[in-house]
Nucleic acid binder design. Sequence first.
DNA 1: AAGTAATATGATAACGATATCATAAATAAA
DNA 2: TTTATTTATGATATCGTTATCATATTACTT
Lengths: 342, 342
Amino acid sequence: MEKKNVTIKDVARKAGVSVPTASRALAGYGYVKRETREKVLKSAKNLGYQLNFVAKSLRTRKTQTIGYLLPDITNPFYAGIARGIQDVSFTRGYNAIICNNDNDILKTQQLFKMFIRNRVEGVIYSVPFNEALSEIVEIVKNNGIPVVNCYGSTRAPASDVVTGNVSEGCYKATMYLLELGHRDIAFLKVRGSGINARRLEGCKKAFEEFGLHVHPNLVIEADDFTQHSGYLNTKIMFAQSKRPSALFAFNERLAMGVLKAAKELGIVIPNDMSLIGVDDIMAELLEPPLTSVAIPTYEAGRTAASLLFNRVEKGNNELPVRHMLVEELLKIRASTGKADQE
Amino acid sequence: MEKKNVTIKDVARKAGVSVPTASRALAGYGYVKRETREKVLKSAKNLGYQLNFVAKSLRTRKTQTIGYLLPDITNPFYAGIARGIQDVSFTRGYNAIICNNDNDILKTQQLFKMFIRNRVEGVIYSVPFNEALSEIVEIVKNNGIPVVNCYGSTRAPASDVVTGNVSEGCYKATMYLLELGHRDIAFLKVRGSGINARRLEGCKKAFEEFGLHVHPNLVIEADDFTQHSGYLNTKIMFAQSKRPSALFAFNERLAMGVLKAAKELGIVIPNDMSLIGVDDIMAELLEPPLTSVAIPTYEAGRTAASLLFNRVEKGNNELPVRHMLVEELLKIRASTGKADQE
DNA sequence: AAGTAATATGATAACGATATCATAAATAAA
DNA sequence: TTTATTTATGATATCGTTATCATATTACTT
């Protein structure tokens, strides 16, 4: 009653056929007489046989597995992407090995090598830029494994890339603020973030359409994307200069920090100041519900997986490099309003 | 420049040794002369050799992989557990295959069978009870695979179980409310949830210590654990009966729904009513910051993984069944206050 | 110097499946 | 009937490693 470990050999013997015949019967592939197949299937069922996927993988050189590298699965942004990848994978009969790199390059290297050793058929990653990233991604590709970058560093090489129309999303949001009459709009971005830089581009474009320019003093650079950082920078900004009529934070956590600081300072949103965020994970649940640029993480994950499976099926080098965009939408809620009429 | 696919055979040939010797050198196992090892390692490095883990797994019957089944990775509660499992696994050189069942029993069966086919060395699950769950869990166990239940259905069999001291956590929270002078305390639970039933037990115990009883009318059963459900039930309750002086929702989403309903009804928390939640995922970020019973999901995941690896190492049947508790703590914030003095 | 133990290496088998090929039986075509 | 084709089955090789065992070499003991 301990371990059973039924192999196809047992199934074949019990059914009175050879191993290859049993294999064909179970796989439903090639020529097998109807009654033979039934005998084999019955035998398999009786013995409680479960295919050994490890052996199959070795022989067929297909592991039906892909790897996904992200910074941290407890970050809902990445969890959304992960879920999209998992769903597409599940439908195709694949598994995804999901690993956290905690933005640690040493871990990144370890994990990518692990992916290679495990002979994953493809890799998706969503990690920010790092000097050593390009190198290790190149190694993965040299091992014949297609790589898709999903909202990760655009500076690292990949077969295909999925990102949002980040500058357009922010363009729309800024246009919306401008149309509400706001002119003194502050932007809270994270220093060193390539995506945030592109977000700011979109905002500048909107200003230009109004014949205006973003005031450099109103572009604030946070050290990181934590709530605390948003809180701190807001406090500092409001202590130093005139309060802007609207604030656009390029990240939801930052926006939550702004919200908290504003509350403490007695600034009522949206009456005293409008606020826009990005991400749209908790936005609807905040007080007030936050107007924000929604990132369709689930769709991004699905798209990345689809691109990857295209390459897995067609052979990596058959296809040209593709760059797919998912649409970031402005969701208008209660944290924005018309500018003061003074 | 296409696929390289370097095997240990190539490494051995280039180093001028036999394959088994190369294997020993690379694994750092058994007798290998110092210079031989160096030759092999150099050869491996030059060729860009990466061990084929599939082949190794087949031979050693160790896949260094475990499976984790959860309802949905985008739910931060499960993401926390997943992260704990992943971290312990990573440290041990294992991978976790994480799969969502969406509370669908058909998927559950498919996924558990997939775990068996993939020859995972252990399985952890966090899924609610379902008639067919016991059956499939039993099949997994019969295949010699240890199973650990982490905050899942306690009615399904498993080698080991990890849960929180759920009734104690709620006992503490209720004691706190009682000590603040509250007597009309409403409880919002989810119908059919075994864990929520145990939570209520803890609350009742606290009442008994005060020589009181929970009023049955003040135990409200929600259909599910969504924010909407919390919102709806609050509206209904407040329309029908006298408003309680405190409300205890056994789930954060429910509590957020209560918060929203209260806001709409002009009920100020905590002045007009105290509110306590469970989970403590976003609690700190809500307005007002929510007093709640914190579930240490990350720790629970780590604990579950540790239990599992004990069995993986020691052999499944060597160890007695263990039930580990992680401590749920009451975090006091701004949503609770003294009862009215009327 | 002889015997024993430790070290080092390789030949062979095995893990559990599928791929490839050869051959036999059944069926269709001439 | 003969030949060609389709269907059915099994023998054998193979995927890339490690386990097991046998043997050769070196290093210690006495």
